[in-house]
Amino acid sequence: MSRKQYSKELKLELVKKHLEDEISYWKLGKEYGIEASIIRRWGHKYETFGEDGLEKQNADLCNYSAEFKKKIVLEYLGGNITSQDLAAKYKIHAPSTVRTWIKQYNNHEDLTNSRKEGVYLMAKNGARKNTTLEERINIVEECINTGCNYASTANKYGCSYGQVYVWVRKYKDKGIEGLYDRRGKNKAISQLSDIEKLKAENRLLKAQTQQQQMEIDFLKKLDEIERR
C-alpha cells in the first residue's frame, strides 16, 4: 500500500498552526484526518531544518561546500542566470537555497561548509531552549540583522528554528510584549523599567531599519546587474 503524499504547503500550514496558534498535534490530526504522529514528525523536521525540511525530497540537505556556494553566488551575480536555473543546473535542493546563499553573501556573512546529512544545524534533535526575556530580545535582534535567517540564528544560540521563527513573528505582531514568556518563570514586561523597555525597543527598531536599507541596496545591485 503506497504512502499518502502531502504537499509542502499543507505541512507548513499545520506546523505553523501548532507553533503560532498552539493547537495540539492531536487536534490538528483529528481536524485534517492525519495521524498526529505524522504532523509531529513534520514539526520536528521544521524545527530542525526549517521549511526545507518539509520538501518532498530532502536527502541532499546540508551537503554543500563553502567553495561550491561561493561559485553559485558569483555565477548568479554575473547576471546571466536566475536562481531557479542555477538550482536546476547544479541539482541544488531548491531555488530558495540559492537565494539564501546570495543573501548571506550580500550581508557579508561567511559561506561555510554545510554539515553532513543527518547532523542538525540547530540544537540537537531540534530541542527547544529555555530562555530569558533578554535572551529572546537578543535572538530576535540577531535574526533581523541576518535578514531573518532563522536557521543560522538558531544554530548560533542553540535553540530550535521554530522558536526563532515564533519569537520574530510575535515581536512583529506585538512588539516587545510578544516576547514575554507567559508561563511566568521569567522577568515580566511590567517589571522592566521604562529605560530598559526603551533601550530594547530601540535596538530592535534599529535592526529592522538596517535590514530594510540592506534590502534596498541589494535590490539596487540586482537592478544594476540586470541593466548590464
Rank of each mutant, 00 (worst) to 15 (best):
N138K: 10
Y64W: 08
G33L: 13
L86V: 06
E67Q: 05
Q5V: 14
E196N: 04
K4H: 13
E196D: 11
I195P: 00
A188Y: 05
K17R: 15
G184D: 03
E47V: 00
D85V: 01
M122C: 15
D110I: 13
Q84I: 07
T209D: 08
D21G: 01
G147L: 09
E51Y: 01
S190C: 04
D52T: 00
G126P: 02
N113T: 04
E215P: 00
I189D: 02
L179E: 06
E51V: 14
G53Y: 06
Y165E: 10
L133C: 03
R169C: 02
E20L: 13
M214S: 04
R3W: 08
E177F: 03
K116I: 05
G29W: 09
G162Q: 05
K174P: 00
A123H: 08
D60M: 14
Q84V: 10
N107A: 12
L192W: 02
D173R: 15
L14Y: 07
I144Y: 02
E141R: 09
E142M: 12
G43I: 07
K4G: 07
Q57A: 11
H93Q: 13
K172W: 05
D181I: 01
E224K: 12
G29R: 10
E196G: 02
Y6F: 15
I176R: 04
G178I: 08
K103W: 00
T100R: 15
K71L: 08
K11R: 15
Y6G: 12
G175P: 04
A200L: 03
K124W: 10
K91M: 08
I23V: 15
R228P: 00
S96V: 12
E215D: 14
E226R: 14
E22S: 12
Y180V: 14
G43L: 05
S160V: 09
L179Q: 09
T100I: 06
L205H: 11
Q212R: 14
E20F: 13
E134M: 13
E22F: 07
K27D: 15
L19A: 05
G126Y: 02
V140N: 03
R40T: 10
L219F: 02
W26I: 11
L77P: 00
N130C: 03
N125D: 15
G29Y: 04
I72M: 10
S190Q: 12
I225F: 11
D110E: 14
K30I: 14
I144H: 07
K220I: 08
N149R: 12
K124E: 15
A127E: 11
I34K: 07
A154I: 04
Y64D: 03
P95C: 06
V15E: 11
W26M: 10
F68H: 09
L198E: 13
R115E: 06
L12Y: 12
D223K: 14
I137A: 04
K71E: 03
A88H: 06
K170L: 11
S37P: 00
D110G: 01
E142V: 01
L28Y: 11
K220W: 01
S193A: 07
I92G: 03
T82K: 13
E134G: 04
I137W: 01
E134Y: 05
K116D: 05
Y90S: 04
L10N: 06
M1C: 11
D181H: 08
F68S: 02
E13Y: 12
Y180W: 15
T131I: 02
V140I: 09
S37F: 09
A188T: 08
S193C: 09
T112P: 00
E35P: 08
L12T: 09
I195E: 15
V119K: 15
Y64F: 06
